[in-house]
Design a protein around this nucleic acid. Structure first.
Lengths: 142, 142
DNA sequence: TGTGAATTCATACTTTTGGCCGATTGTGTT
DNA sequence: AACACAATCGGCCAAAAGTATGAATTCACA
């Protein structure tokens, strides 16, 4: 996709260059415009092209994150973390207390505590802040 | 710094362009090389310049983090967070308990609690997880 | 159909955390 | 010197969080 686009654009650029050259050649016989102007025109055109290519090259880094998202579920299964536990983990990351989490999930405080305890076992943590740190390390939360 | 560099580079580029033009002019009288070759040369040169500029432009995003680091202190002052409090905040983010933080900083548990309490006031939080969330929002911790 | 995992809840207990007081010491500023 | 401020510490109490144990329910799936 990206490669094909690049090739097409390169072709277009080459065609444009040829056009400019032909135009210049034509003008040359007429002895109308100065050479400097042609060169300036070409320069501006290719600076533009260069900027575009440069941006393309650096934009590759932005595409990476999407790969990690798909890996998440695999990581969760490897750690034995269930959906509900992961849900609770997310709410902990948002800074909610057990009570607030319980209210949000329509369960009792006990249930949330059970989930967090299990989370701590699986994440090898003994505090919620530690669990968050571990979860970030394991890249299961942003 | 960056602006000055850009200006210098722009100057160099202009000088280069002038050189190319003079060279082209000279060659023009000799009627040796073709016009297409000059144009091609200029094109290649400015594609290079364009790539460089493009990377500069996109690299702005990469440079931002360092800018934020310098902004960090300004943010901290705006929030009234002291060095010691910020230190404690960092250790909380690493998942340490008050006791562990106290040991690491060679102070008493009371002192750490004082720092965290002040932090909570300044970050408008009432839990350490909430403080972390706020701190991330305010971009004073990664 | 029954088996295991996930989810739910409770109770009791310990540890950690947070809120609210006050107090001392050093440092730099006016 | 007087003052503001950062950093330090302690005590007390209440709330939140974490641990351990046991048990009921639901639900997928073999």
């Amino acid at each position: 996709m990206t490669l094909r686009k690049s090739i097409i654009l390169y072709g277009v650029a080459m065609a444009l260059l040829m056009g400019v050259l032909k135009f210049a050649e034509y003008r040359f016989f007429v002895h109308d415009l100065s050479l400097e102007l042609y060169l300036g025109l070409v320069a501006v055109l290719f600076v533009g092209l260069g900027v575009w290519v440069g941006r393309r090259l650096t934009r590759v880094k932005v595409i990476e994150p999407s790969t990690e998202i798909t890996r998440d579920e695999a990581k969760l299964k490897k750690l034995g973390i269930t959906k509900r536990e992961y849900e609770v983990l997310g709410l902990i990351a948002q800074g909610l207390s057990n009570k607030e989490i319980a209210d949000k999930l329509f369960v009792s405080n006990s249930t949330v505590k059970t989930h967090t305890s299990n989370l701590f076992l699986k994440l090898d943590a003994s505090r919620r802040t530690q669990a968050l740190q571990r979860a970030k390390e394991l890249q299961i939360i942003p």
